[in-house]
């Protein structure tokens, strides 16, 4: 379902730019690029801020370093991570 994936990625990009006060716009964030260390200037505090936002808004936890590496590989990876955990936890 590529369309649905796009929706979540677009939504995540918007929330990320807003929450972190990034000096860019959501449509300029490359969904395939690494989130950390790739020009967005995102650091460990930002990722923690995103962790809280994702748990609050999507009910999905990112609570180990390994999970963080997986989830923050890119916006596409983050969307996939959220989808996977949500479907795994739904009845």
């Amino acid at each position: 379902m590529p369309e649905q994936t796009d929706c979540l990625v677009v939504e995540l990009a918007r929330k990320m730019v807003e929450t972190l006060g990034l000096d860019t716009t959501a449509d300029l964030v490359d969904p395939a690029a690494p989130l950390i260390g790739a020009g967005l200037g995102i650091d460990s505090i930002d990722t923690l801020e995103l962790v809280v936002m994702i748990e609050k808004d999507y009910g999905v936890k990112i609570d180990t370093r390994a999970a963080g590496v997986e989830a923050f590989a890119s916006l596409n990876a983050l969307a996939a991570y959220i989808r996977q955990r949500r479907s795994a936890s739904s009845p």
């Binding site: 505090i45 930002d46 923690l48 801020e49 809280v52």
Partner: peptide, 13 residues
């Protein structure tokens, strides 16, 4: 607002 569940690490710092 979130019943003591969520806030902001950035604001804490």
């Amino acid at each position: 607002e979130t019943g003591d569940q969520f806030s902001s690490p950035m604001d804490f710092i």
